[in-house]
Design a protein around this nucleic acid. Structure first.
Length: 115
DNA sequence: GTTGTGACATTAT
DNA sequence: CATAATGCCACAA
């Protein structure tokens, strides 16, 4: 049996699939994507997977942010600007490099509804 | 083989 | 708020 992990093609595809499933106007985190892809604890691999993802896949990579809603790129980088632009284009509010989110009031709000 | 780096996360200080 | 320590692991050198 092939181990369920490694950096096999299959693993990358699992990650790409999870990212592709993020609905418009919503954001999620690297860790959450990893989990949905069946790779708990491997958030870093998600970052790698996105970096090497073929542009052809048209992945909504901008909907993936770091823990706390923070954009993972350096504040001054062009990538940061691009991600912020794309998120705002979907109606997601940002401030200081983070996705603005109301304080969680209940369990429902605890999931990334962004509003 | 070892080391350093990185689109990360969590916990502790 | 900022660092540091861990855990995680693919990849390049």
């Amino acid at each position: 049996m092939m181990p369920a992990s490694g950096s096999s093609r299959q693993t990358l595809q699992a990650i790409w699939g999870a990212v592709r499933a993020i609905p418009r106007g919503r954001v999620t985190t690297y860790g959450a994507v990893a989990q949905r892809a069946g790779l708990p604890g491997r958030a870093r691999l998600v970052g790698y997977a996105l970096k090497v993802a073929p542009a052809k896949l048209q992945l909504p990579w901008h909907r993936v942010v770091a823990a706390g809603g923070r954009i993972a790129f350096p504040l001054a980088s062009p990538q940061f600007a691009e991600q912020q632009r794309r998120l705002r284009a979907e109606g997601i509010k940002l401030a200081k490099g983070k996705v603005v989110r109301e304080p969680a009031l209940n369990l429902d709000e605890l999931l990334w509804k962004t509003r």
